[in-house]
């Protein structure tokens, strides 16, 4: 589950408009060769992000709130 996005406002809003809203369930099914960038799937939408940006997304598993 996506908990928070710690990026500048404009960028965070763009991600949220694409479906990456805090509280949604995120999976990462695919990646480019080498593992970066990675494709994040949320609500049927797929958005690719580089690691340097994805590291600012806080993810947590529902059973184990960090």
């Amino acid at each position: 589950m996506l908990r928070a996005i710690d990026l500048p406002e404009a960028l965070a809003q763009r991600l949220m408009e694409m479906g990456l809203v805090p509280g949604s369930t995120v999976s990462a099914p695919f990646a480019a060769p080498g593992g970066d960038p990675r494709v994040y799937r949320v609500d049927g939408a797929e958005v690719a992000l580089r690691r340097e940006m994805a590291q600012f997304l806080t993810l947590e598993t529902p059973e184990d709130p960090a």
Partner: peptide, 9 residues
């Protein structure tokens, strides 16, 4: 410094 890369599939 950092590149903003967001790409919808």
């Amino acid at each position: 410094e950092r590149t903003d890369f967001v790409l919808e599939m």
